[in-house]
Structure formats: C-alpha cells, structure tokens
Amino acid sequence: MLERVYIVRHGVRLSWFSSNWDKEASGSGLANDDPLNEDGEVQVQELARHFESLPKDKQPTAIFSPSVPEDRCLQTAVPTSVALGVPIFVETGLAEFLHPVIPGTGLHPRSPNAAALQHLFPQIDPTWSPVWIPSRRGETMAEHHTRMAEVARVLLPSATRNQLHRSILIVTHVVPAIALSRALVNNTELSPRVGCGSITELVRGRYISMKEDATACEDTTAETSAWEPVVVAGTTHLSKGILKDWGFEKLTGKVEPVPGVAGTETKEDSPVGSQVVTTAS
C-alpha cells in the first residue's frame, strides 16, 4: 500500500535570469521550455543526495513528472532517478496551470509523449499511460484545483495497481504542487510559500476505530482518509535555502487568457480528463 508521497517543485529555471539559451534544444521547442540554471543544477543534486540518504523504506520507488514544460521538471527528477535506480513516469495530469486561451485563437500545445522524450531523458519508462489529460483550452484557477483533486484520485491507486510502491515522488510546478497538496490533505486553506527544489512530504492519514467491547481502540490505515503533512515546502536539504518561492497570495486579480497556437483553431480538444477506465462493481 502506498504510504508516503513526496511533492517537489522543479529547480530554479534559467529564463528568470537570462534569455540566452537554446530554445531549439528543448524537447517541445516551446519558448518557455527552458532548462535549469546553475542554482537549479545544484538543487537537483542536493535533492538526489537527500532522497538517497533516507532509510530504504522511505525512499521513493517511482517518480512522476509532467512533460511540458519538460526540461525543468524532468531535469529535476533525473539525478534522483539515477541515484535510486528508479523510473520516471511521464504524467500529463501534473502539468502546470494552463491559462484559458482566447476564444478563436487555437489551443495550448500538445504535450510530447514519453517515447518522444526518451532520447533526452533515458530514465523515462514509456510503459506508463497518463491517467489524466488536461484540456488544451486552459482552465480557471478553480478548474485547476478540480483537475489536481481528480489527478490525485486516479493517480495514486493507478501508481500502485501493478507494482507495490510504499513511497512515490511527484515533481511538478508550483501551482499544481500547492493544489495537489491541498487536495491530498483536504484543506483548501493550505497556503505554503513553495520554493524551487522544496519538498512536501505527506503520509497516509490514520483513523481510530473502537473495538466492539469499547475497552480499547485500534489505529489502522484508512484508504479514504486525508493525507497528513510531515513537511510542507521544506528546504533544509538545500544549501542556499529558499529560492524563488511563490504562494497563492501573489495571485491577484483575474487570470488573463492567452493566445492559443496558430493553426490549431479547428483542432478538437480531445482526449481530455481521466483516462482510467472504471467498471461498475
């Protein structure tokens, strides 16, 4: 049974400091698909050393990361994947918050699949099929929170269906990192300031059930209980501490729509949503 989830925000990205980078070298070719800078490179090595230092039963045995913008998330995941010898699974449901597109201007770019990224990141295991596909029309902030709650609902059971994982690592962007944490702990008021390379550690919640004679109680793991935070946006493993932290208090006013990709105005926005087939019991 899955007992522990780590949520990591990607390392510090280069474009915050410089526009001098090879945009053609990214897997998607997107202008905002920039790699990590020197601080980010240090952070991801420190993340790997931290996870490698944990007791074996607390080390993640699988890593989940979105594919676009893939450079900074997958770059962040690679050193830990190598250090622990565990696979990276590309999960599109963990993608960054997607601004709504301006009507009539097209759709957001489609995420590259795992097989298309293996030449850049050989640690990717292409056998994983994404459990959630975001709408390419974008989303409101409320819809993003709904998306992450649904991703949590289908991802965690799917991650352990065919292989036993006691701990998994999710590497993503700051907005989905907070929204996912809120969904798992069942607390929409959770408002951490999440720095690059920070770690949120959650353990499966527990409940107290009274025995029939009411003389004792038993602490048992509940499948449906909320997850409990052990650490929220922790940075003690990072030599430079908190860098480029962000919290929802910085989000003011209405989220502005953005243009879609030219040439996709008539494209269908499908598939969308959960890709997990459920059957009635």
Rank of each mutant, 00 (worst) to 15 (best):
Q118P: 04
Q118W: 04
Q118K: 14
L120H: 10
L120R: 13
F121N: 01
F121P: 01
P122I: 11
Q123P: 05
I124E: 01
D125K: 11
P126Y: 08
P126N: 08
T127M: 08
T127G: 11
T127V: 12
T127S: 15
W128E: 05
S129H: 15
S129Q: 15
S129G: 13
P130Y: 03
P130A: 07
P130T: 14
V131F: 02
W132L: 03
W132N: 01
I133S: 10
I133E: 14
S135C: 14
S135H: 11
S135Y: 09
S135Q: 10
R137N: 14
G138I: 07
G138C: 09
E139T: 10
E139A: 13
T140H: 13
T140N: 08
M141W: 15
A142W: 12
A142S: 15
E143D: 13
E143L: 12
E143W: 03
E143R: 09
E143S: 11
H144P: 01
H144V: 03
T146D: 13
T146P: 02
R147D: 00
R147I: 00
A149F: 02
A149R: 05
E150N: 06
E150C: 01
E150W: 00
E150A: 03
E150S: 03
V151L: 00
V151G: 00
R153W: 05
R153S: 09
R153N: 10
V154T: 04
V154I: 12
V154Q: 00
L155A: 02
L156S: 01
L156T: 00
L156Q: 01
P157T: 05
S158F: 06
S158H: 10
S158P: 07
A159D: 01
T160M: 07
R161H: 13
R161P: 01
R161N: 07
R161M: 11
R161V: 08
N162Q: 08
N162V: 02
Q163H: 12
Q163N: 07
L164Y: 13
L164K: 13
H165T: 06
H165M: 05
R166H: 11
R166Q: 11
R166L: 11
R166N: 12
S167R: 05
S167L: 04
S167P: 06
L169I: 06
L169T: 03
I170F: 10
I170V: 15
H173Y: 09
V174W: 15
V174I: 13
P176E: 12
A177T: 06
A177P: 05
I178L: 13
L180I: 01
S181P: 04
S181K: 01
S181N: 05
A183L: 01
A183E: 02
L184A: 00
N187T: 05
N187H: 07
T188Q: 15
T188R: 14
L190W: 11
L190P: 11
L190G: 08
L190A: 07
S191E: 15
S191C: 13
P192M: 13
R193T: 10
R193D: 12
V194D: 08
G197D: 09
G197V: 02
G197I: 01
S198L: 06
S198F: 03
